[in-house]
Nucleic acid binder design. Structure first.
Length: 513
RNA sequence: GGGCCGGUAGCUCAGCUGGUAGAGCAACGGACUUUUAAUCCGUAGGUCGAGGGUUCGAGCCCCUCCCGGCUCACCA
């Protein structure tokens, strides 16, 4: 892109020189606007209904600022639309109002994508659109690269906005998210909703008396989930560090330290495949509460979710990829083994490992070699039960082997007190009565070490310091993890995690252009 | 990693059994003082993802590679 600018970019650069000749600064320092676009429109409507417009039907003068998204020249006048964070407003340039010089500058210097400030009285055009009649205008920032702005029209029958041409290349939209956002208000809307979700979560947690904390991203021993980590290296420490795969173990150390309720919202990193529901870095909410068990945490999750949909969406009924989902408590609660028994028509507890494996093979579930009983049950569950869990459903009591950080079930020691919440066939939350017996924790870590030896790269490492913390005494504690990206997908009806992450990971693009 | 599909002008796309690349929008010049995908006349714009091969001739056929989408696997 060094020499061979395309035609559009060349002419825009030439306009820069023209501006210099005319003494116009292409990149301004600031602009005083009086109204956002929608505020200005609203102001005019109020003046209109209050009957305070002047004889020509003009309202108060305003100044607005935004990006020029459309432009129609008509000789001695021109129309365009400015878009700011609030929306768009039409602006109207007339030669007799602006004067020959200023009007000529509009025609000669301005391009789609430029940031403009426009000042003038409001009025309503013959076609009924509230518009700023420019008395002065100012270039705030010259756009030197053409934005893929599609032309839009409003369907006269349905009122829907139809975009022609536009910016469709999915790869380009992720790589140049700034351009995607600039031309797609609906994409900006997704990320506004994401922000409202996070705000609503903080509101809820803070109101419930949870303390927001930050724990290390760089960790000498990783843990808290089953996943492969990213490695990095600290130069002066001469040691390998891991990017965290979960916050869990540090947050429970804080409960040991005497904080009774803590939460953290932060990035986790897992060195695994990338697909519609996985991005290597993603955002988790984890919270821990002393003296609570997983039943208490189920209630908390239910209340949290209801609060979030109330605050972020304003409705408890949502549509996800065509399916209607009702976030209305109480959510269904089913034990994992019951759900499996229904789906398999056999008692999974009484089945031998061979029978389970046989069943899994018949379903063509791959990668069964290193799978033990627990893993087999998990795979069968994923294949047979999970897809049907559309409405919010808690699945309870997971096999011990899958849950090295969860307390054994008080009435069945082959299970743990753990639940996951499923919505729209996707796992949304994972929680348990936290294992607080340091001896048991050591045994579980050692079992995990055994799995590692069998080739399970995702099995836990033994975290000696964590066991030491437990030895000081962890009160009974309930803990929850919720993937915020997937929650956002659900609440914004997005099919891909990339559509709720501003800058999702992509392969390196070729340099140039 | 496997399978399928795709990468052509700034954007969205077309391009037949191989014959030297097109449209709309955007851009540029001109007309037009209330337009709504404004309209009308004219002009310019391309390393057809990259590299190699076959051929008199490749956007098109063959091989390798890069990037993306979907999907399967992996991933609670």
């Amino acid at each position: 892109m060094t020499e061979d600018l395309n035609q559009v970019m060349r002419t825009r650069r030439e306009k820069l020189e023209l501006m210099e000749d005319r003494g116009i600064r292409p990149f301004a320092y600031r602009y005083s606007r009086t109204h956002q676009a929608v505020e200005a429109v609203e102001l005019f409507r109020q003046e209109e209904s209050a009957g305070t417009l002047d004889a020509e039907g003009h309202g108060s003068p305003v100044s607005v600022a935004g990006r020029l998204m459309s432009f129609r020249g008509h000789g001695k006048s021109a129309f365009g639309h400015l878009e700011d964070a609030s929306g768009t407003i039409q602006v109207y340039f007339r030669r007799d109002l602006l004067g020959q010089e200023s009007f000529q500058n509009v025609l000669d210097l301005v391009d789609l994508g430029d940031w403009l400030g426009v000042e003038g009285e409001l009025f309503r055009t013959r076609t009924g659109e509230v518009t700023v009649r420019a008395s002065t205008w100012e270039l705030l920032s010259k756009s030197l690269r053409p934005l893929p702005i599609g032309k839009t029209e409003t369907d006269p029958e349905t009122g829907e906005r139809i975009t022609h041409s536009g910016f469709g290349d999915i790869e380009a939209r992720y790589r140049r998210r700034y351009a995607d956002l600039a031309v797609h208000p609906e994409v900006r809307e997704v990320f506004k909703t994401r922000s409202r979700i996070v705000t609503a979560i903080r509101e809820f947690m803070d109101d419930e008396g949870f303390l927001e904390v930050e724990t290390p991203v760089l960790q000498p021993v990783y843990g808290g989930a089953a996943a492969r980590p990213f490695l990095t290296r600290h130069n002066t420490l001469h040691r390998t560090l891991f990017l965290r795969i979960a916050d869990e173990l540090y947050l429970k150390r804080l409960i040991v330290g005497g904080f009774e309720k803590v939460y953290e919202i932060g990035k986790d990193f897992r060195n695994e495949g990338i697909d519609r529901v996985h991005n290597p870095e993603f955002t988790m909410l984890e919270f821990y509460q002393a003296f609570a068990d997983y039943q208490d945490m189920m209630d908390q999750v239910e209340r949290l979710l209801v609060h979030v949909v109330d605050r972020a969406l304003g409705t408890r009924t949502l549509t996800y990829q065509g399916a209607e989902i009702r976030v209305e408590p109480p959510f269904r609660r089913i034990r994992l083994l019951e759900a499996l028994e229904d789906a398999m028509d056999m008692d999974p507890l009484r089945a031998t490992e061979e029978e389970l494996k046989e069943r899994a093979y018949r379903l063509r579930l791959p990668d069964l070699e290193v799978a033990g009983r627990g893993k087999l049950l998990d795979k069968l569950f994923e294949a047979l039960v999970q897809p049907a869990l559309q409405q919010p459903t808690f699945i309870l009591d997971y096999p011990r082997e899958l849950s090295p950080l969860a307390k054994l079930h008080r009435s069945n020691p082959s299970l743990t007190e753990r639940f996951e919440l499923f919505v729209a066939g996707q796992e949304l939350a994972n929680a348990f009565s936290e294992l607080n017996d340091p001896m048991d924790q050591r045994r579980r870590f050692e079992e995990q070490a055994g799995l590692r030896a069998r080739g399970d790269e995702e099995a836990h490492q033994v975290d000696e310091d964590y066991i030491r913390a437990l030895e000081y005494g962890l009160p009974p504690t309930g803990g929850v993890g919720i993937g915020l990206d997937r929650l956002t997908m659900l609440l914004t009806d997005q099919a891909s995690i990339r559509d709720v992450i501003l800058f999702p990971i992509l392969r390196t693009e070729e340099q140039g252009q």
